[in-house]
Amino acid sequence: MKITNTRFLLALSAIVIFTQCLTQAQPLNNPVLILNKVDDVINAPKDQDYKVKLVLIDSKGNEKEREMSMLQNGSDKRVVKFLSPADQKGIAFLSLPNDMMYLYLPAFKKTRRIASHVKNTNFAGTDFTYEDMEAIRYADKWVPDLARSENNKYVLQLSPKAAGLSDYSKLVMTVRADNFYPERIEHYNKSGKLCKIMTRDGIEQISGYWVCTESQMEDLKTKHKTRMIMTDMKLDSGIPDDKFTERFLTR
């Protein structure tokens, strides 16, 4: 009897050790948890101040550049000002919570409230739609499913929480396992076909936060690409609230 008990205990401890090994090899297998971590990492800085260079590349490889400055407070207040090309200099956007968006056109010296509820409209000639530019937590909109994990990467498949929430039928997101930064997102259109691929290069740590300094969106149908390069990045610099006002737009 005693022998049996000892054997049982041995077997049990073996199982426990084995299970622990398994858990260490696969630290996370809960897709919801992974997606929440993704959202936390992306939205970690309290405020952001940076310049963006947009490079628009057409199917023949011709490039066009645009520059803008971006101020962001939290995840729902944002000011974008165009710096170049010359004929677009001074055009500014302000987006505030509850879908409030203002546009300033310098040649008219007028600010207009603009409603752009349309998700699938491309933003300023880029391959990003207004939906792609939305400052929103992924977990609020998508239900994740862990497709696979490999080579220190998680591959999540995201399906919309409700019909009509997104112009895409699904996203396939590749997340780095070390810092939970998403480095590739495949966008599938309504007929379930892969239509756009977003890739993020230059994922680095600035002021203790993980940020991405270069990303690219490619439209597979038009073969048009947009590269976004972020420079002069200042995080948590304490941007005052009065920068996110209509009056600031005109300045």
């Binding site: 203002y102 546009l103 207009r112 409230r113 603009i114 409603a115 752009s116 509820h117 349309v118 998700k119 409209t121 009509g164």
Partner: peptide
């Protein structure tokens, strides 16, 4: 043209 601004979008919102 809207009361306090403008709207650029689609004639019909396909989601509504």
């Amino acid at each position: 043209k809207t009361d306090d601004g403008l709207e650029i979008g689609r004639l019909i919102d396909e989601y509504k």
